[in-house]
Write a protein that binds this DNA or RNA. Structure first.
Lengths: 337, 337
DNA sequence: CTTGGCACTCAGGAACACAGAGTGCTAGAT
DNA sequence: ATCTAGCACTCTGTGTTCCTGAGTGCCAAG
């Protein structure tokens, strides 16, 4: 039903349309790609492809344009992820190498990816719940206030100022800190609630109000950042592109953490390190855009996701190559630190 | 040369043009605002105003449009900052009240301001250099690594992982921490370099390499964040507006910390709490946009600036009211915490 | 199954006319 | 001295028409 030549025609249509942004006709197609057949033959194939829903024409007697379904087939079967050039690889390495902390890694990554793909890049902060506790610190600020600092193995630091219900001596605070660390060090964040559940009972009764306050803040910190922050960069790249859905909608989505989260997160599959591509109407919101995403993280644990958002008419092989490469480098950086 | 009526005409032109986005003609003007003169008279005044450069016509025989100079006069002499409605004030209060830490305050503020003005809001993080040290913490991670945490009176926390040149016992670290805090607590960040200058000499010689490493990181932390981060929100509001300079340029500027910094920062004057307005070509970059900004901060110290960026054709009285109100509320919040 | 030929369709651009809004100017009214 | 009314003029924006060219679908021959 779809023989090799028809697939070749589809591939050619996608490639031409992506690079020219104009509906591609049978004649130009037969010339530019050396299919060794006449335009008329190409037309027949096109008719078949249109019949199947892979391409469409904006108006009667214009060239053809790929549909979402067409792009899908192209991505799945007709294209290969394009590796980056050596120069690009070097650029990535040097750019990411200079990062000083987690914030910096994320910021650099998102900018890098935006620049590399000339699209909007989106990076999710490593999710706390999959991280482990490296250290808990209680810093007395004065006799009624302590600062809780939670450090994770990904280098992320969360802090909260806590008002205590009563004056607590520094030595008690120090003791509590020791207990907390003994209890939590190295444990997964998601296990923290169980681990601290019986903690108040194991401490002197006079400390319980203060402990309860501190623990509730600790748990709140864990919950609050449960689905983690997402940052983006490269919004300027939207200016040129034309979206079927309004530009406004896209910009709004970018500032709406929840929407972004779903766009990125819902793509996660059994093998999170695989590239996932969502094309146009496959997206839950933002029907007019495509998303190329993948997981990243230190070692074998996937911590979070990053990706690129752009118009459906996008150079998928190149974009996929860039996303994959950046994800790998970031994972390396995170593993090293 | 510019009598009261001419000024009234200019005010009317600005107001009409801002609300309709169309060049305003003499007839409509004479009707809508009850200047009690005929269109012909208005025309004479308009001719005078154009002569002086306050208004211009896009093409012969179209209505008039204010020039940058016209807006400037309007802002300086013809308009009053419009206070917010009671409902808006309540909204601000409740929205900002829920903030849990400095990051949260800034994030909420910038979103609030964007929503309130329907423009792009820009908020600069409180500058470290004007803050004071509240606490320095050294957290041993293992025998070769410590984490340096610097807490300021604005609630900002900076942290760095430090690789020590040699193994240092925990007790030594604790001692150094005590010394550092005794030395720095409550001091202005800008005075830190002098204060720690002779510190190595006052400590046992065997600790010096480690101390030197730690101090250099501490100083680096101070310097690096010297000009602070700027965040923005409300980019979606750009979608509707039309900029003389391209939309792309504006989006690029928003992601370019340095440019934003200058746009916000260079407006600072002797009295930083005053509203500053830069109109169109008065801006160093981004000629086609206007910026309404002001300082904010706890107490009488101005810590940083916040503001709004939008098209030159902007409702200045309303925008100025919103910026002023938000700045005041944020200052309150910061002072309270 | 492929190819060449042919009639058909439609978007986009050029040429044109025209209505409407707005102006500048001058002469009269206050 | 200033305001007003009238009038001729100048534009932009819009609607109409026409035309070209790219591209198609179909059919009959290779």
């Amino acid at each position: 039903m779809l023989d090799d030549r028809k697939l070749a025609v589809l591939r050619a249509i996608v490639e031409d349309y992506v690079s020219t942004n104009e509906p591609v006709g049978s004649k130009a197609l037969a010339e530019r790609h050396n299919l060794k057949v006449s335009p008329a033959t190409v037309r027949n194939d096109m008719a078949a492809l249109e019949e199947e829903g892979y391409i469409t024409q904006p108006h009667t007697s214009a060239g053809r344009v790929p549909t979402d379904k067409g792009y899908r087939l192209f991505v799945d079967r007709l294209s290969q992820v394009k590796p980056l050039s050596a120069a690009e690889r070097r650029a990535i390495e040097t750019f990411l190498a200079g990062a000083v902390d987690l914030d910096d890694v994320v910021t650099r990554t998102v900018r890098l990816l935006a620049q590399l793909t000339r699209q909007v890049a989106v990076v999710q902060y490593p999710t706390l719940t999959r991280s482990t506790v490296r250290h808990v610190e209680l810093v007395p600020l004065n006799d009624r206030r302590v600062m809780l600092v939670l450090i994770t193995n990904t280098g992320r630091v969360e802090q909260r100022v806590i008002e205590l219900p009563e004056v607590v001596e520094e030595t008690r605070i120090a003791h509590l800190r020791a207990v907390l660390n003994a209890c939590l060090d190295g444990c997964g964040l998601s296990t923290v609630p169980e681990l601290v559940a019986d903690l108040p009972e194991r401490l002197p009764v006079e400390d319980r109000p203060a402990v309860a306050t501190i623990l509730s803040v600790l748990l709140e910190t864990l919950v609050e950042r449960h689905d983690e922050k997402i940052v983006f960069a490269g919004a300027a790249n939207l200016a040129g592109a034309d979206f079927t859905t309004g530009l406004r909608d896209v910009l709004e989505a970018l500032e709406e953490q929840v929407v972004l989260m779903r766009l990125l997160g819902e793509t996660s599959t059994d093998t999170p390190s695989a590239l996932t591509v969502r094309i146009g109407s496959e997206n839950p919101y933002l029907r007019g855009t495509s998303i190329v995403a993948t997981g990243y993280g230190s070692g074998d644990k996937q911590l979070a996701r990053l990706g690129v958002l752009g118009p459906t008419r996008m150079d998928y092989p190149v974009t996929m190559g860039a996303v994959r490469a950046v994800a790998r480098y970031v994972s390396q950086i995170l593993a090293a630190s």
